[in-house]
Amino acid sequence: MSLAVTLQELKESALARIALATSLDELETIRVEAVGRKGVLANAGKEMAKVAKEERAAMGQLLNAVKTAIEAALEERTGAFTAAALEQRLDAEWMDLTVPAPGVKPGALHPVTQVQRYLEEVFTSMGFAVLSGPEVETEWHNFDALNIPPTHPARDMQDTFWLEQGNLLRTHTSPVQVRGMKRLGAPLRMIAPGRVFRNEEVDPSHEHTFYQLEGMMVDREVSIAHMLYFMQTLLREIFQREVTVRLRPGYFPFVEPGFELDIQCSLCGGAGCAVCKQTGWVELLPCGLVHPNVLRAGGIDPAEWNGFAFGLGLTRLAMMRYGIDDIRLLQSGDLRFLNQFR
């Protein structure tokens, strides 16, 4: 039997086995037996020496062609098996992502923290420093320095929690005006958000613990016109819309003149409704030009410097923003309430 015939048979037999193979392993066995270093094709190659010289080139070509054909068949089948295996794996890896993700969901910041932070950013962008002051305050900082002498009826207006040694729980964030002036000197722009206390019975709209944000600006020239401009700008940022404001007289010993600032009722647009008690206006914040006695208490000469100051009710703003109708929820620690603000 000529080598040519043998090669042809080898090829056919290998191709037939490849076609029938059912696994990658089987293919590998075929590969080793057919085209491996010690395989049948290699053995056949050894026969080449016996082939007549003039036929050798042709026989060599045939050998290579057989090898290439077998290898191509192997590769094709291997590829098919690999693809099938991958497909099977992928199919097996079907999963359900509607199952909740493991791990803990993020918590929530308190609504007052969120409103406070928003305001701090607005004020910082307008060049205001953000200051802190102690919640346990001296009587001097809370009253005397703010032009509220011991006999002043304004001390009646604020029901104070008194502590030992004449200290008290600050009834407003205004004492930070004086601390801020001492720390920063003039000119200055500052706010002081924080917790304040009033000796009041708690009900859905009253709390003995609540939050304010004090603001103050001191400079050479500060007028009512400047304060109006600033308040309009600020309130536009807070409410994210144009607001119409009005000033009317208000009495606070630490400012002179003192004002109540009202904003036009957003519900009725000023026409008058139940929310604004038919007046078209909603009282928003007290403000005024800083009383010279307060500037003096802060170590600033009122002959050279002027200022305005204002107080925002953070608690009230938070209640307005989130539609909270019971102030007691804020200090309740009730996660069913607090988790709504994630």
Partner: peptide
């Protein structure tokens, strides 16, 4: 007070 036109204050351009 409504007769007072709002006026932007001149303040130092300094970071807080």
């Amino acid at each position: 007070y409504s007769s007072i036109p709002p006026q932007p204050p001149l303040v130092p351009a300094a970071p807080p």
